[in-house]
């Protein structure tokens, strides 16, 4: 059996004295889309930041292709092939769209290929081509999200990590973006680790999913299984049985089975 592309083992990360992640393990295989679900404050973003080296873990290992990469500088990790699309886009507002994309390819020196990839990005996101020379700050939220994903892709990473791409997007735009994420995975063979609050859309596009609660993993499995789980339905998809009175307020106990 080959080693997974990314593996987290018993990661513990602190913010000062506060333990934000208490022992989390996860694997992402080559070519997969893996979703991590969880409510606000569950530790999803912390998990991504720990994987990319933006935060140092106090315990545990991060393995990329079997090689330990934990507690290294983020730029070193980025060169190793992990691209991180942060929560809230974080495009460079005063650079143009084209410059933003070029920033994504900063670590590369294969000029021809970069040009090719830029064309690919414009192919996936025609809107970006249209505003190619506009400052990124003038783009809409959805376009900025596209740009952030495009910028991540420009590094030609082995693993693209997306932190809440659905944040602040209209349902239609969200469908579009997740459609493109799926295509990137299928057509470009890009492995994707996706952190989302929107469980419904995340589980539909992903192969496998993990559920995080208060800093720990409580459940994992193939996404179609998770979609059928009673707890996921009630607590993440908002599909609860109405109960005998037609309006049930009390919550069932989570069992994560």
């Amino acid at each position: 059996m080959t080693a997974p592309l990314l593996e987290l083992r018993n990661i513990e990360t602190y913010y000062g004295p506060i333990m934000a992640i208490r022992g989390v393990s996860l694997t992402v295989d080559d070519g997969e889309i893996v979703a991590v679900l969880g409510a606000n404050g569950a530790g999803k973003t912390t998990l991504l930041k720990t994987a990319t080296g933006a935060l140092n873990s106090n315990k545990g290992k991060v393995l990329l292709d079997g090689e330990e990469i934990q507690c290294r500088d983020p730029d070193w990790v980025a060169r190793k092939g992990i691209a991180h699309v942060p929560e809230g886009r974080e495009v460079f507002p005063f650079l143009t769209v084209a410059e933003n994309l070029a920033m994504g390819a900063y670590t590369r020196n294969d000029t021809d290929a970069v040009e090719n990839d830029t064309a690919t990005v414009y192919g996936y996101f025609p809107a970006l081509l249209e505003f190619k020379d506009k400052m990124a700050a003038y783009l809409s939220g959805g376009q900025q999200q596209m740009l952030a994903i495009g910028r991540g892709f420009m590094a030609r990473p082995r693993l693209l990590m997306l932190d809440e791409p659905s944040l602040g997007l209209s349902p239609a735009l969200m469908q579009e973006i997740f459609g493109i994420i799926t295509r990137l995975n299928e057509e470009q063979g890009l492995t994707i680790l996706l952190v989302e609050q929107n469980a419904n859309v995340a589980l539909r596009v992903s192969d496998r999913g993990y559920v995080m609660e208060v800093g720990g993993m409580v459940m994992d499995g193939p996404s179609d299984h998770l979609l059928e789980s009673e707890d996921i339905k009630e607590f993440y998809l908002g599909k609860k049985e109405e109960g005998v009175r037609g309006r049930r307020r009390w919550k069932k106990r989570k069992t994560w089975r």
């Binding site: 083992r9 018993n10 208490r22 022992g23």
Partner: peptide, 17 residues
């Protein structure tokens, strides 16, 4: 047992694993 797993670097996700 979770505590043991964590201190001995035994990776796991949920109770079953």
């Amino acid at each position: 047992v979770e505590h043991y797993a964590q201190t001995h670097a035994v990776p796991f996700t949920d109770y079953r694993s």
